[in-house]
Design a protein around this nucleic acid. Structure first.
Ligand SMILES: Nc1nc2c(ncn2[C@H]2C[C@H](O)[C@@H](COP(=O)(O)OP(=O)(O)OP(=O)(O)O)O2)c(=O)[nH]1
Ligand SMILES: [Mg+2]
Ligand SMILES: [Mg+2]
Ligand SMILES: [Zn+2]
Length: 597
DNA sequence: GCCGTTTTCGGCCCGACTGTTTTCAGTCG
């Protein structure tokens, strides 16, 4: 009988063993191997359990024969003898303390042992009591200050709900506030948002800001006065770390302008990109840091050569500059070395939006848009688009019968034709081709929520799932495949159905779906709504590899939301998509050929 | 423990800050 564990549970177990090994004083590299494996399992795009069933555990980078064997024990029997043995001598409560900031294995162990924290459920609360009683300050290696610091950290930990990461646009707003504040500091020469923000990761854990200055001390003092700061976490000559009133952490790293290039590289990350880059440098006899490159890392001469721009920094390693969105240690260093970096799609390549909602007046199956056709066209024109598809939700099938739906869709076509052919609009929007589309629900049985007869009134259809999210993989996959069979279907909308921080992805076999898309010349949508960003980047990457086409759409429910295209392009770039992979980056003629072909 | 354009041994990123401690360990990014 197999025992199921989620990726997060498996990663948690690996981290606990790593922490236990740290306390035991085991080899640091072996510990790192456990931590690496934990991160790898955490970030897996499929379930480790499924990989185990398919006997493919050791295909996870960072999981080798040994760990695969341990995880095999875990999934078969529900526990791992070796893990249990390593953790047994240690107080069980210590593992519950590891997520408290500033508490690592050593401190967790010392305090758990000292105060008898044997249960994970009560460990943090008991520790707080001990800290409040003042007993911690008397322990060897601790003092009044560390006691105070720990109390703040434990209190924050106990208040915290979950490890929520911010959506990219929310973090962008925070960063803009800080950058605007920094721009009024005369000693700041350059300032940029780096870290996950610059890599355009869909969710952001903290806000990282790089600063170039010749007077770091003055900038540090200036940052300490930031109005939205709640607490100063750390400060030195190269760093200020603040906790904001909304509990978000801000890291500001400072270097001289001569070191700007190396800071950009380092502080953009990702961590794994940095580590692999540094390992590559070591093989070349160089050593990298945010301050520059030691070109003779092994000699006694330790001169650090400085780089004021990133291009030169990468060039010094024999690489061409790598777009931040690609810096995830997913093969980008190799392709840069081989001069085979893809020319990633850019926002300015986008020539139209293929999924937008208007305020059209029927009772629709889901939320309608709030702006009319002309308002959308106005914005589309401002964005320089060559084409725009109006894709309202289908009429509600519980409100209308089939014949009524057919006549409604016919009526809508006539209405759109009329609007765009008025003399005024013909002149105003002459540069934009308007497409008559619908976002049609895929019903649980895979049929469409409009009669087939109505499809002839559309230029094309986007089909999407908006119900029955919990179906089993086989059934859900069949459902999607069936929907792709209908005439006029050209785009599968928000294919995984995920809502970041809220709803998991649908259980779908995307190998099968992509094969079908390829066969039928159907595009997968990259929905640009920041909470969706769906397709997720790993599936984008897979689609690009297979040659499956993609459409980046805003799914705008108001004219201003047409401007969220950027977030979809970010995902496309993180999935290594080129202009040729994105149907709405094609000129009208080419796009139209695809649409009707 | 993992891993392989100097493959199955011998490497494994590098620095900032804190706090308690006379020279550094622990934690974090
Ligand atoms: N070389 C190296 N660089 C690191 C390490 N940890 C972090 N960095 C660099 C790369 C990161 O992108 C950058 C900022 O660190 P963060 O912890 O804020 O990570 P990041 O912003 O990538 O993700 P986040 O959304 O904050 O979780 O600092 C490390 O262990 N080694
Ligand atoms: Mg960050
Ligand atoms: Mg950070
Ligand atoms: Zn939808």
């Amino acid at each position: 009988m197999a025992h199921h564990f989620s990726n997060q549970e498996v990663a948690g177990k690996l981290r606990e063993v790593a922490a236990a090994m740290e306390v035991r004083g085991d080899d640091g590299f072996r510990i790192r191997a456990y931590e690496n494996a934990a991160v790898a399992v955490d970030n897996l795009s499929s379930e480790a359990f499924d990989l185990w069933e398919a006997k493919k555990l050791d295909e996870i980078p960072g999981v080798g024969a040994n760990l695969a064997q341990h995880l095999d024990d875990l999934f078969r029997t529900g526990s791992v003898k070796h893990f249990t043995k390593v953790k047994k001598p240690l107080p069980a409560g210590m593992f519950a303390l590891l997520d408290i900031s500033g508490v690592g294995p050593k401190i967790a162990y010392t305090l758990s042992k000292q105060f008898g924290l044997t249960k994970s459920e009560t460990a943090a609360v008991k520790l707080k009591k001990a800290l409040e009683s003042g007993k911690v300050a008397d322990l060897e290696g601790f003092g009044e200050q560390s006691q105070e610091r720990l109390l703040t950290a434990v209190t924050g930990f106990l208040k915290k709900k979950g490890p929520e990461r911010l959506l990219l646009p929310v973090a962008e707003k925070v960063a803009e506030g800080i950058l605007s504040y920094l721009s009024s500091c005369p000693e700041v020469i350059k300032a940029s948002a780096l870290g996950s923000l610059r890599r355009r990761v869909p969710t952001v854990g903290d806000v990282d800001i790089g600063v170039a200055t010749n007077q770091a001390g003055a900038v540090v003092d200036f940052m300490k006065q930031y109005p939205a700061a709640n607490r100063l976490v750390a400060a030195g000559e190269g760093l200020v770390r603040l906790e904001l009133t909304n509990k978000l952490t801000v890291d500001v790293k400072l270097v001289n302008p001569t070191e700007w290039g190396s800071l950009l590289q380092h502080f953009t990350g990702s961590k794994n990109h940095n580590i692999v880059l540094r390992e590559l440098a070591l093989k070349q006899g160089k050593s990298l840091s945010e301050h520059g490159i030691k070109h003779e890392a092994r000699s006694t001469k330790q001169e650090v050569r400085k780089y004021d721009n990133e291009e030169d920094f990468y060039k010094a390693l024999g690489l061409t500059w790598i777009p931040p969105e690609m810096r995830e240690n997913a093969g980008e260093i190799e392709v840069s070395e081989q001069r085979k970096l893809p020319q990633l799609v850019e926002l300015k390549d986008i020539k139209g939006d293929l999924h937008t909602h208007t305020d059209y007046y029927w009772i629709s199956s889901h939320d309608a848009g709030t702006d009319d056709i002309s308002t959308l066209l106005e914005t589309a024109k401002k964005l320089g688009y060559d084409y725009l598809a109006l894709g309202d939700h289908n009429p509600s099938i519980s409100s209308y019968n089939e014949n009524k739906i057919i006549s409604l869709i016919k009526e809508r076509k006539e209405y759109i034709d009329k609007i765009i052919s008025t003399r005024e609009n013909k002149v105003k929007y002459s540069s934009i081709k308007v497409l008559n589309s619908l976002e049609v629900d895929i019903r649980p049985d895979g049929t469409l929520a409009i009669p087939e007869e109505a499809l002839k009134y559309l230029d094309f259809a986007v089909v999407s799932i908006h119900s029955s999210f919990a179906m089993k993989k086989e059934e859900q996959t069949k459902r999607v495949l069936k929907s792709l069979f209908y005439a006029k279907v050209k785009i599968l909308g928000h294919p995984t159905g995920r809502l970041i921080n809220q709803r998991e992805e649908l259980d779908i076999d995307f190998n099968a779906v992509m094969a079908e898309c390829l066969k039928r010349n159907i595009a997968l949508e990259i929905n640009a709504i920041p909470q969706r960003l769906d397709l997720p980047e790993t599936l984008v990457r897979q689609a690009v590899k297979l040659g499956v086409k993609l459409a980046i759409n805003t799914d705008a429910h108001s004219a201003d939301q047409l401007e969220q295209m950027r977030y979809g392009v970010d995902v496309a770039r993180r999935g290594w998509a080129k202009k040729q992979d994105i149907v709405n980056a094609w000129p009208w003629e080419e796009f139209q050929h695809w649409l009707t072909g």
